[in-house]
Design a protein around this nucleic acid. Structure first.
Lengths: 89, 89
DNA sequence: CGGTATCCAACAAGATACTG
DNA sequence: CAGTATCTTGTTGGATACCG
């Protein structure tokens, strides 16, 4: 959902921004969010297919939560970072 | 973690506040939070046993997130409520 | 009181191949 | 491009019994 805060995004666009997510799982998650009414899935009937995802009003109502979470994550990113070669050098 | 915002709580106290959680799962979750450094588990060596849980400094740093989430939940509680007999009457 | 230990059915999810 | 379908393994969590 973070990636939809800025507006709409296409499937592979989201996928590129979330490395290590399989296509299957991303599809599942997006469908679940849609079923929960948090995001909107808009299909453009054209070839090649184009599908745009965006936050629904309910999804946007979560913005404060998402931002609070992002703030925390940014402040504590070192907790998740693996010690890199460079950091050790 | 919500239930630790106010201070410390004992095992069965938390359990009572989270209906439908099995003992096994609550134990698992608490141990995981402890392993992640988010809560502190304090055991009092006495009979009968007494174990108190509280937020660690890192856990407390999540307070803004937890509160944002709670605010959202309170505002949207109707989304989760099952239609009761009374509401239908 | 606050757990463990064990068993087991159900579900989740990776890999892979295929499609309009 | 944005998915499905299928197979297969791994993990989750409920039920139940027991413990210091």
């Amino acid at each position: 959902m973070f990636h939809l805060l800025g507006g709409t995004a296409r499937f592979n666009e989201i996928r590129r921004r979330v490395p290590d997510v399989t296509q299957r799982m991303l599809t599942n998650q997006l469908r679940e969010l849609e079923a929960d009414g948090l995001i909107i899935r808009k299909v453009y009937p054209q070839v090649p297919p184009k599908v745009e995802y965006s936050l629904s009003p309910l999804g946007r109502s979560l913005e404060p939560v998402l931002l609070a979470l992002k703030t925390w994550g940014d402040a504590n990113i070192d907790l998740f970072a693996q010690p890199s070669d460079e950091a050790l050098a």
